[in-house]
Simulated assay, not measured.
Amino acid sequence: MESTVFVVACPKGFVTGGPECLHQLVNAINSLGSVAVLWDPEESRSDAIPAKEYESYGCTWDSEGPKPGDVVVFPEVMTELIPKYYSKNLCVIWWLSVDNFISTSQLPIEVIRECYPDLIHCYQSEYARNFIEMHELGNQLALSDYTNLDFITFASTLKRHECDQSSKKIVAINPAKGFERTEIVIKKFPSKKFLRLENMSRPEVMDALASSTYYLDLGTHPGKDRFPREAALLNCIVLTNTRGASDNDIDIPIDVERFKIDDSLDGFELELLSIVEAMDFNICTNLEMQSTYRNKITNEKKVFDEEVTKFIESIEVEISLVDVGIRNSLLDTHNFMMKVIQERDSALLQVAEMNKSMSWKVTQPIRFCLDLFKNLYKH
């Protein structure tokens, strides 16, 4: 594929899980002999400085954007750009965070399904794969990511935790996610030291996790998050809830009965307290029970390279099947559907406003008509 260029949309200068995945993809494509560049479609960030943390991936930034015939990879938070490039480029959605799409996308999922049937949908997690399948989106490909190799190297230098029952066990937490639930736990654990993973460099995070016994994550797990994997790799016992990607045994393959808590239940913190108190006397045993998870993390880079190879091969096939005429007609359908959806949402908003000031008897006929409109739209 010497003539094909992969343009990967990525916010420049951001240091979070998503941008690192996008850097990893560009690095892997280039390493396999194809050509890939990063591109930030937001003009206001054109002068932003690329994140130093990702310099090791050796990525090149392109300021001009996709040219006709390029393959364009959009993270799910940038799907609103697809209509602009769809007729001249093969477009890919990489589902890194399902929850971010739900909360921020300007392109409804039904429009993606009906107007762009030949998009390639890559999923970073089992959670994302289930979402794609539930919404009947075609052309699915696995495209995960891997834990930064600095953690792999650092982990190889560590010794296993000593099973010292008298030592004070440290619980590492990420206060940026699910802290309203984590705070409940903190108040119930006066004997525990909680270490916040915030405002830290990568070496500082590694040292913090290496000094911790547990890693507690009560966030929403919108994808296969990095912190749980980094913590597991550095010999923390990982404890999570059952939200998002944590609610399956593929993204976080740890015993649900032993290491995962349903934090939607009243009093969940008491159950967690009981579990951790028991684990304090069996640190090494519980670490060993998560060895499968650690081994899987160690092997991520190899799996990712294999997935990228299949991704490139699939792109070759898809390029040969592109029909520009059909794509232009689908764009017309897109415009119609977006108009209908906007009218629907406007009607819903008007009804919501009327409900605040009108009785049920007055709004009931309006609700009936609105439901009728919604059913007509579906069919």
Results as ranks from 00 to 15, higher is better:
207 D>I: 00
140 Q>T: 10
159 K>L: 14
195 L>W: 03
178 G>F: 05
213 T>I: 07
206 M>A: 13
173 I>P: 01
184 I>G: 01
182 T>E: 05
176 A>Q: 11
210 A>W: 05
159 K>F: 15
151 F>S: 13
197 L>R: 10
160 R>F: 14
208 A>P: 07
190 P>E: 04
183 E>P: 01
184 I>L: 07
181 R>T: 03
175 P>H: 10
166 S>P: 06
186 I>W: 01
190 P>Q: 15
161 H>K: 11
176 A>E: 01
145 D>N: 15
195 L>N: 12
211 S>N: 11
191 S>L: 11
152 I>Q: 05
157 T>W: 03
146 Y>W: 09
183 E>Q: 09
222 P>G: 04
152 I>N: 14
137 L>H: 02
219 G>K: 02
205 V>Q: 07
205 V>T: 13
201 S>N: 12
178 G>A: 04
157 T>Y: 04
204 E>T: 08
170 I>V: 09
135 H>S: 14
190 P>R: 13
170 I>C: 11
142 A>V: 12
165 Q>N: 13
141 L>T: 05
212 S>H: 11
172 A>Y: 02
161 H>W: 08
179 F>P: 04
178 G>M: 12
177 K>G: 03
197 L>K: 04
150 D>V: 01
191 S>D: 15
205 V>S: 08
160 R>A: 09
192 K>W: 15
157 T>A: 04
164 D>Y: 00
200 M>N: 01
147 T>P: 11
189 F>V: 08
199 N>C: 02
170 I>S: 04
151 F>A: 15
200 M>L: 13
201 S>I: 02
184 I>E: 10
151 F>M: 12
216 L>F: 09
190 P>I: 00
188 K>P: 06
197 L>M: 14
176 A>W: 12
154 F>K: 04
168 K>W: 02
221 H>D: 05
139 N>Y: 01
196 R>K: 14
214 Y>N: 08
214 Y>V: 11
200 M>E: 04
146 Y>A: 02
200 M>Y: 03
219 G>A: 14
171 V>I: 06
176 A>P: 01
188 K>Q: 15
150 D>Y: 01
159 K>D: 14
198 E>Y: 05
140 Q>P: 06
151 F>E: 06
148 N>M: 02
138 G>M: 06
182 T>P: 12
148 N>Q: 13
171 V>K: 06
212 S>E: 02
171 V>L: 09
153 T>D: 13
184 I>S: 03
154 F>M: 09
180 E>M: 14
150 D>K: 14
168 K>Y: 07
222 P>D: 02
177 K>Y: 14
195 L>D: 15
212 S>F: 01
